[in-house]
Deep mutational scan, measured.
Amino acid sequence: MEVRTIKVFTTVDNINLHTQVVDMSMTYGQQFGPTYLDGADVTKIKPHNSHEGKTFYVLPNDDTLRVEAFEYYHTTDPSFLGRYMSALNHTKKWKYPQVNGLTSIKWADNNCYLATALLTLQQIELKFNPPALQDAYYRARAGEAANFCALILAYCNKTVGELGDVRETMSYLFQHANLDSCKRVLNVVCKTCGQQQTTLKGVEAVMYMGTLSYEQFKKGVQIPCTCGKQATKYLVQQESPFVMMSAPPAQYELKHGTFTCASEYTGNYQCGHYKHITSKETLYCIDGALLTKSSEYKGPITDVFYKENSYTTTIK
């Protein structure tokens, strides 16, 4: 009895394709271990004539594949690729409408935090270190965002349907971005203890939790000093293409032309909904596939993004 075979390709990165001759009487799992086709788990399936010449994702289970996976995804987590594939199996079914010149995501599976993050990423200057993220990001900007969303979920250790947080998501993504040249110098002034300067680099240099107003941050924000008295913390120097200011959701007025974009969060910790506000020729609110415009805006804002380049204080 002759062994019926077909020729397929296996890959971990969709760049390096490895030619395989597979036995049609055995499952993919018996031949390769966990195997995925377009995100779908085909591990328990036997090869079919229609699979001839198709590319299958496999887990990096030998040295060659491990090197290829690390170079593309910059992670050695053995569960990463499987999590990416199972997320992709959902995100490829989502709709990605162009809204006001940006790629958004039609609401499904509690994905409003991903839509808000995706919209924000198209408006701030950011370059990702893992080629996987950078490639998928370019495709997302062009309207094909399924891979990018699935990668975000995998890097953030999230599953489809789980509630997510924009600030946490951005923080994970910033860790995989090139923020080497970003720098922030802060000064804390206390009447009792004097003053202390701190220099922050990388992710810490672009994120701040405690106030939404970048102007206020430049002037000074009140913080408790270690001595128990009130101290003032203010920005001395900022070198970065953008800054992200966050605070627990509270009524906040966004003035046209003073910011790049913002995240609105309605609801409580267990259950809520994100919308995205962007400042173009007027203010726009993007909620999944829905767009509304207004000249002014007041609502429960939790993150505001500002364009920056270089700032030095005039406070002496």
Rank of each mutant, 00 (worst) to 15 (best):
V3N: 13
R4C: 14
T5F: 10
K7I: 12
V8S: 04
F9K: 14
T10Y: 11
T11I: 10
T11R: 03
V12T: 08
V12S: 07
V12D: 01
D13P: 03
N14F: 12
I15P: 00
I15L: 12
I15E: 10
L17P: 00
L17D: 10
H18P: 00
T19I: 11
Q20N: 13
V22Y: 06
M24I: 14
M26G: 08
T27S: 11
Y28H: 06
Q30F: 04
Q31K: 12
Q31A: 15
F32W: 15
P34K: 14
T35R: 14
Y36D: 08
D38R: 11
V42L: 12
T43H: 12
K44T: 13
K44G: 14
I45Q: 14
S50G: 12
H51P: 03
T55A: 09
Y57V: 13
Y57T: 09
D62I: 02
D63H: 11
T64Y: 13
L65G: 12
V67S: 15
V67D: 12
E68P: 01
F70I: 10
E71V: 12
T75L: 09
T76L: 14
D77A: 03
P78G: 00
P78K: 14
P78H: 13
S79A: 14
F80A: 01
F80R: 05
F80T: 01
L81K: 00
G82T: 14
G82M: 15
G82D: 12
M85Q: 09
L88A: 07
L88E: 05
K92Y: 01
K92I: 11
K93G: 09
W94N: 06
W94T: 06
V99L: 15
G101I: 03
L102N: 11
T103M: 05
S104N: 01
S104Q: 11
I105P: 11
I105H: 06
K106E: 15
K106D: 15
D109H: 09
D109E: 11
N110R: 08
C112P: 11
C112E: 06
Y113L: 05
T116D: 02
T116N: 10
A117M: 03
L119N: 01
T120S: 12
L121N: 04
Q122Y: 03
I124H: 03
E125L: 05
F128T: 02
F128C: 02
N129Y: 05
P130L: 03
P131C: 05
A132M: 03
L133S: 03
D135R: 08
D135F: 06
A136N: 07
Y137N: 08
A140R: 08
C149S: 05
C149W: 00
A150W: 00
V160P: 07
V160W: 03
D165L: 04
V166K: 09
R167L: 06
T169Y: 07
S171V: 10
L173D: 00
A177G: 03
D180H: 09
C182R: 04
K183C: 08
V185G: 01
N187A: 12
T192V: 10
C193S: 03
C193D: 08
Q196R: 14
Q196P: 04
T199E: 09
G202W: 08
G202I: 03
V203M: 07
V203Q: 13
V203W: 11
A205T: 01
V206A: 00
M207A: 07
G210C: 09
T211S: 07
L212C: 07
S213Y: 00
S213M: 05
S213D: 12
E215P: 01
Q216P: 06
F217G: 01
K218A: 04
G220T: 04
I223R: 01
P224I: 12
K229R: 14
K229C: 09
L235C: 06
S240H: 03
F242Y: 07
F242M: 06
V243E: 06
V243Q: 00
V243L: 05
V243D: 02
V243T: 00
M244S: 03
M245T: 00
S246A: 05
S246E: 02
S246N: 00
A247H: 07
P248C: 08
P249W: 00
Q251T: 14
Y252M: 07
L254P: 02
L254D: 01
G257M: 02
G257K: 00
T260M: 15
T260R: 03
C261A: 07
A262E: 03
S263I: 00
S263G: 01
E264F: 01
Y265D: 05
T266E: 04
T266I: 09
G267V: 02
G272D: 08
K275Y: 00
H276V: 03
I277C: 01
L283P: 01
Y284S: 01
C285G: 04
C285H: 02
A289E: 15
L290C: 12
T292E: 09
Y297W: 09
G299K: 10
T302A: 04
T302R: 03
Y306G: 01
K307T: 13
S310N: 12
K316E: 15
